[in-house]
Design a binder for these strands. Structure first.
Lengths: 151, 151
DNA sequence: TATGAAATCAACTGTTT
DNA sequence: AAACAGTTGATTTCATA
């Protein structure tokens, strides 16, 4: 479905999404108009979902990462209501429903452990149906990317 | 440190990083050259780390997400050697060292559970010092973003 | 730090192969 | 699908406020 040139374009965009099209065209050996058309097509097909700036969390007081296991009472989770309530919390970056454990795994970013406590107390355990939480705080991050290796 | 206009620019770039500067300038009410200079400065200061394309994982056979707890023998983790070895695995998107548990938490993306098994068997448990793994597979994802709310 | 003018370069369209 | 040429529009620099 995607040929070598398109994969090449995506790899370039994964590194530097704000690169000019003409530079991409030089790198992949196509005319700028051809590159433009390929990118457009991939955007329309939903292969490319968008472009994001990567901000440095340290500069925005979002240095503390934590993962939280959220257990709940099944009676309150119709249509994933709890997952949606968790997703609405701004400090939470990821909400996953985990197989087998009947629980959600949540990733969040806050300034420090004090703020972590506040979010837990004020925003998470107050969700109707949430029974308990189990927090793992991160001491060090060795890798953190949304990149997928393209093949 | 960052005034209202710069925050506004960052918010715009978080949504659409490939937006032309002139359009940003119209949105924030500054001249294009002023927008350019602000963005340049934030790039140099490390506030902006880069720009990424967001690809649709389904289109690249990366639909299965899993979180893996990796326990290890402390004697083999000098200088975070195990964290680094985990980070080098292409299917792994995140590697975090977790407080208290003496373990790593890893997030990965693969095509399916078969591939998950292969990565575990061939790439993770083969790292010297890794004692055991505990995998949580994701059934549904409600939210998944690297965005931080700017303030 | 912002603006505005001017130059360079890129984006985009239409046409052709 | 791609290239080419032409037009529109964006980026960038610089002088100035």
């Amino acid at each position: 479905m995607l040929d070598k040139k398109s994969l090449r374009i995506l790899k370039i965009l994964q590194e530097k999404a704000r690169i000019p099209n003409t530079e991409v065209s030089r790198l992949v050996g196509l005319a700028p108009s051809a590159v433009l058309e390929r990118i457009r097509k991939m955007e329309l097909q939903g292969i490319i979902d968008g472009y994001e700036v990567r901000l440095n969390p340290e500069r925005f007081l979002r240095n503390q990462v934590a993962f939280i296991n959220v257990e709940y009472d099944g009676g309150f989770d119709g249509d994933g209501a709890i997952g949606q309530a968790l997703a609405a919390i701004e400090e939470i970056q990821e909400v996953h429903y985990i197989a087998g454990k009947d629980s959600y795994l949540v990733k969040l970013r806050v300034a420090d452990t004090r703020e972590l406590g506040n979010v837990l107390r004020d925003k998470i355990i107050t969700i109707e149906g949430v029974l308990s939480t189990n927090t793992s705080t991160v001491l060090q991050t060795y890798k953190e990317t949304a990149r997928i290796s393209i093949r």
